[in-house]
Amino acid sequence: MAKRIDVSGLNVFYSKFLAVQDVSIAIEPRTVTALIGPSGCGKSTFLRTLNRMHEVIPRARVEGKVMLDGEDIYAADVDPVNVRRTIGMVFQKPNPFPTMSIYDNVVAGLRLQRRWKEAELDTIVERSLRSANLWAEVEDRLGKPGAGLSGGQQQRLCIARAIAVEPQVLLMDEPCSALDPISTLAIEDLIGELKERYTIVIVTHNMQQAARVSDRTGFFNLAGVGQPGRLIEYDDTERIFTNPNEKKTEEYITGRFG
């Protein structure tokens, strides 16, 4: 189910502004890759290019290649809608659909694909919510609004919604930055379980989090104000946090800037 991602020579633009320059990175299936770096360094922008969410912004575009198991997701005949069905995403701010119940939120992506039998959906809802460690908390109120849950529960609902469609890859854009420490811990545990089945890429501002959950870590940084962001270093998480190659990485890890 999980697929590998190979990015080569990726430049990301907002109109004429080059936001991220020349990123090449290989992400193995069934691993957690953390992207860290100071604010505005382009890590979220880069993440959004992996499921073609970047181009949703008017006049945003990319150059370069993003291969999903050898298939270029930016090839001319590729429909971005299909890319996003294959590569799920969880956002910084929990964003369950406010007009839908918990149940309907989980199956929202499935209902886009085709008609389903009630029983099929029931099974998937339970399985997805169990995978997201939310089932026990909501099984008796699946018909209630998803937006009525706590922030941490909402985020786990969003994860359930993302995995209900059985994506190959799960992208997470600072999924815990709006959550309290206990909810954060719950999500981190969940990431550990999900990586058995998915390729996970997570952007985080929290370096302890990157160290706790990820196998590999990429450090993004700006060369200066108005300069594009770059991938400075990408290596095993342990190495990045103990003995990085680049001086900038070390300075950031040890809290000297950022």
Binding site: N51, M53, V56, V81, F91, N95, F97, G109, C158, V165
Partner: peptide, 19 residues
């Protein structure tokens, strides 16, 4: 964020309107 949630699930433009 709701529009993006729908897009990220693989919604087409019309499906974004609908969901």
């Amino acid at each position: 964020e709701h529009v993006e949630a729908a897009l990220a699930l693989g919604a087409t433009k019309w499906e974004v309107m609908r969901t």
